[in-house]
């Protein structure tokens, strides 16, 4: 009886190692890590989805993955240089006083925008670019893009470095004629006021109802060093001549 059961046990053991059992075990053996991985990943996704949603706006501020796409789609963004394939920004505007229609070309950031001449001060065709960041001001004077576009009525603000583009600005005197020439209009101004102001004083670069041009530069009175003061030359517009724009 005892011997028969030993034989029977061996047979049962053999059956346990039959092919179907082996396949099932092999499957269990291989699939268990994947099953655990799925459970772990699902638990983590569930646990972290809420904190991720809360954190996402902040990470988007720091890592702007969509920035490239947005940049190429944007026609005009502040402080961004023109894309190679960007179209000219031409617009028809109507003069409120004369009801005449004129064409204006709006600049992209860093574009060559205009030239300034004040013969009495020795300033001849000083190049004006759009924008007033340090890199733009290394090329020439810069039109402050927080002021009105050249041609519009208001305060057109142009800045330049005192040792380069606006080196001769202190030579301007009241009554001097200043011309501002763009691809779509030519404006003639007369110097009406010259002021020295502190760098924190924004009076002269603020928008104004007056049709004026404000040119300013650092004021260090012919000396070396970084000044806290600025010299502003304020001019009144006396003539506005519109040009035909060629595309």
């Amino acid at each position: 009886m005892k011997r028969t059961s030993a034989k029977h046990n061996a047979e049962v053991r053999h059956q346990k190692h039959s092919s179907s059992n082996k396949v099932l075990r092999a499957f269990t053996f291989v699939l268990t890590p994947f099953l655990i991985l799925v459970i772990v990943l699902s638990s983590l996704v569930l646990a972290l989805s809420k904190p991720y949603a809360q954190l996402k706006p902040y990470t988007n501020l720091v890592f702007d993955v969509s920035a490239k796409e947005a940049e190429s789609k944007s026609v005009r963004t502040l402080n961004k240089y023109r894309d190679d394939d960007a179209p000219l920004q031409i617009k028809e505007i109507q003069d409120d006083e004369t009801n005449e229609t004129h064409t204006m070309v709006y600049p992209y950031y860093g574009d060559y925008y205009a030239s300034i001449t004040c013969e009495n001060a020795g300033m001849n065709n000083i190049k004006v670019y759009s924008g007033t960041t340090e890199d733009v001001l290394t090329w020439g004077a810069g039109w402050y893009n927080g002021s009105v576009y050249i041609g519009h009525v208001g305060n057109v603000v142009i800045a330049g470095h005192n040792h380069t583009s606006f080196y001769r600005l202190p030579n301007c005197k009241i009554g001097d004629i200043v011309t501002l020439d763009t691809s779509y209009c030519k404006l003639t101004y007369i110097v009406s006021d010259i002021e020295v102001f502190h760098e924190t004083d924004l009076t002269y670069i603020r928008p104004s109802d007056r049709d004026i041009l404000t040119m300013y530069t650092c004021w260090n009175n012919g000396r070396l060093g970084m000044s806290e003061y600025r010299l502003a030359v304020i001019c009144d517009c006396v003539e506005r001549e519109w040009k035909e724009v060629k595309e």
Partner: peptide, 12 residues
């Protein structure tokens, strides 16, 4: 780069 630009308003 900064000091190259800084030389323009300072004259240094």
């Amino acid at each position: 780069e900064y000091f190259t630009q800084f030389s323009m308003p300072t004259g240094i």
